[in-house]
Write a protein that binds this DNA or RNA. Structure first.
Length: 377
DNA sequence: TATGCGTGGCA
DNA sequence: TTGCCAAGCAT
């Protein structure tokens, strides 16, 4: 650690001291179990700490070890992830854990090359696990760290660019103390989460405010520079809540999405994208119902009875806004007996009762629909 | 490099 | 109410 400016030396010293006094008592900080650290880091990607805590506790309870997770059916893993979002994280994690069992004796790799080769483990997660679990002096640059560094060193590069992140990793490599890598990286993130917040940063209580360039120039609120995300694309979707008759009396029809893409492999109610999205829904209820009946026939070759409006519901993804209208239908033929349907559609189907919903993995928007239906029935 | 990929909290 | 987001990764 030679040639470091006073600004950098002071930063390391004050940050470590502050973290050791102020760190939160979080479930994944109870020990240095690399498996636990790994799970927490995957869950925390783009997800708030308060949201993650109960999922983490339940996940570790269900899958206490690498072996337990590796041996579990993917369905169980996804079920434990239900509601957390970004479901490819769960599939990639499951795949990576199997790889760790098969190739690394069920021990999380402790070097950059091996750990980075695992599915779902990118530059941030690799550095986080290596530093937090193994105390390796590797950078772990996430959104918090970029916000802190961009303010402290007045870096006005767009933090959505990869080149900005790699530049910050270089800074971290210069200043990360080789005898306190874990506390240093965690301290950076903790400072970003508790003090150097996106809005209204608490500079008056900040341990490094004295040498913070943005603060000294009154620019802390203007940093970091971040290109605005595109607004989500509006999709108006008509949802079919289909009730069975005869042998399917009391059951509803659900379908499983394809294994790739949005909400891959998850179950849902059938729903159909309208052809001409309008700002407001212009079509009549009858036209909407006819559209569903037509689309359903094209998809399954089966006829629905007349429909009735049930409820409207919206769901916002990062990049898509589903504006949904749910209609109730009856269907008197059993799809499952018709092989042609399986061939003509990319979906799998199942008749289930509302009580069986928790045996399948549904994205949150459909759980909300089921909840609303149960409430009104 | 740009885009796809969830969800819930909050000012 | 609406627009940001929050401990990113894959392609």
């Amino acid at each position: 650690m030679t040639n470091l400016t006073e600004q950098k030396l002071n930063f390391v010293k004050e940050l470590l001291s502050w973290f050791r006094e102020n760190k939160r008592d979080l479930p994944w900080r109870k020990n240095k179990n690399p498996y636990h650290i790994w799970i927490s880091e995957i869950m925390l990607q783009q997800t708030r700490v308060d949201t993650v805590i109960p999922y983490f506790e339940n996940f570790i309870d269900k899958f206490p070890t690498i072996e337990a997770l590796a041996n579990a059916p993917e369905e169980d893993v996804l079920k434990a992830w239900e509601g957390l979002g970004y479901y490819s994280r769960a599939r990639n994690l499951h795949s990576a854990v199997k790889e760790v069992k098969a190739s690394y004796g069920s021990v999380v790799p402790d070097n950059p090359k091996d750990i980075s080769s695992l599915k779902g483990v990118g530059p941030y997660t690799a550095g986080a696990v290596l530093s937090i679990a193994y105390d390796k002096p590797e950078p772990a640059v996430d959104g918090n760290v970029m916000r802190v560094l961009s303010r402290y060193f007045l870096i006005e590069e767009d933090i959505t660019k990869v080149s900005t992140r790699t530049a910050m990793e270089k800074i971290i490599r210069e200043i990360i103390p080789s005898d306190a890598a874990s506390d240093f990286n965690q301290g950076l993130m903790e400072l970003g989460a508790l003090v150097c917040t996106p809005k209204s940063p608490k500079c008056t209580t900040c341990p490094v405010m004295e040498h913070c360039d943005a603060r000294l120039q009154g620019k802390e609120e203007a940093l970091p520079i971040k290109k605005k995300a595109k607004p989500p694309k509006l999709e108006q979707r008509l949802v079919a809540f289909i009730e069975g008759t005869g042998t399917n009396e009391g059951k509803i029809l659900i379908r499983q999405r394809p294994g790739k893409g949005l909400l891959a492999g998850m179950w849902e109610l059938p729903h159909y994208l309208t052809e001409n999205p309008l700002k407001d829904w212009m079509g009549s209820e009858e036209l909407n119902e006819d559209f569903v009946i037509d689309q359903y026939a094209l998809e399954t070759g089966t006829e629905l009875g007349s429909g009735q409006w049930m409820l409207d519901i919206n769901h916002v993804f990062s990049h898509i806004l589903w504006d949904m209208k749910v209609y109730q239908f009856t269907e008197s033929h059993s799809l499952i007996e018709k092989e042609a349907i399986q061939l003509s559609s990319e979906y799998r189907y199942a008749w289930i009762s509302l009580d069986e919903v928790d045996e399948y993995v549904f994205p949150n928007v459909f759980l909300r629909i089921f909840k609303e239906v149960k409430r009104t029935k």
